[in-house]
């Protein structure tokens, strides 16, 4: 299968790479796909907690690379979703423990056993980033509608282009429709216009994301707005043509009224 190794990256930290990775992975598994998530943030692993699998780690990515265990032993199977596996990162090592060449080998070894391999990339553009992108063919760039995150995303897109990526898609996270409406936040159109790569999805800023992370259960596909937005992203990755959500409807009447009196 072509393009089945996807790296989720952003440059800036804290924009939602890990949450996005967890939701896309879970969503694809819910569609019956066999998915392997790899946390490449060595020393600062997080994907395991967001997925709610932190208590089941015995071996990790660095163990596999150093030959301390077999690949299969390090892969944690998510019991809630058949077909969903997580390769956790090491918490007590640093990024120099892995080289891009070793990452490529790991991915080459497992990619044929899965429909999708999704890599959660660390923040920054140093070795951790180089490791994460080494084995991927396709990238999902996550950003928020803020000047700093967009600037970093632009830099990341430039670096991905330099590394031969031709398929890059954008996810705009934490959009606040009310702020866009009153002209105090860039709209998804503005961001796409600036970054110039195709839009894969827009995730509204939604409290339910925090709740889902607290519980260690990604909200994709649920009844919440963010859950629907993530489900749509998953559908688009699968090649479905799904229209973008219209958040205008989600702005409450109350905030529309108070918005009129909002202090300029």
């Amino acid at each position: 299968m072509e393009n089945n190794v996807i790296v989720v990256t952003s440059g800036k930290g804290g924009v939602g790479k890990t949450t996005t990775t967890a939701n896309i992975g879970t969503g694809l598994a819910k569609l019956g796909k066999k998915v392997c998530l790899i946390d490449t943030d060595i020393g600062l692993r997080n994907l395991d907690v967001v997925m709610g699998l932190e208590n089941r780690i015995i071996y990790h990515l660095v163990d596999v690379i150093e030959g301390n265990c077999r690949m299969k032993q390090a892969l944690i199977r998510d019991k809630r979703h058949p077909g969903l596996y997580l390769m956790p990162s090491a918490q007590t090592r640093d990024k120099t423990a892995v080289s891009p060449g070793q990452m490529v080998k790991v991915i080459e070894h497992i990619k044929d056993q899965f429909d999708y391999v999704i890599l959660d990339c660390p923040a920054g553009i140093e070795q951790g980033f180089q490791n994460a992108i080494a084995g991927a063919q396709r990238a999902i760039v996550v950003t928020t509608p803020e000047v700093s995150a967009i600037r970093d995303a632009d830099r990341i897109i430039g670096l991905l282009e330099m590394n031969g990526f031709s398929k890059m898609d954008l996810i705009i996270n934490r959009l606040r429709p009310e702020m866009v409406r009153r002209g105090d936040m860039m709209s998804s159109e503005d961001v796409v216009d600036i970054l110039g790569i195709p839009l894969l999805g827009v995730i509204p800023d939604d409290e339910s994301v925090v709740v889902a992370t607290n519980q260690g259960d990604p909200l994709v596909g649920g009844s919440t707005l963010a859950g629907t937005a993530y489900a749509n992203v998953v559908g688009r990755i699968e090649g479905q043509d799904i229209p973008f959500l219209n958040f205008e409807k989600s702005i409450s009447f109350f905030s529309r009224v108070t918005g009129i009196f909002h202090k300029q």
Binding site: V147, R151, M185, M186, S187, D190, I194
Partner: peptide, 13 residues
Amino acid sequence: SCQVAKDRLKILL
């Protein structure tokens, strides 16, 4: 402020 952000970003990028 959205327009300010866009203008700043255009030059910045």
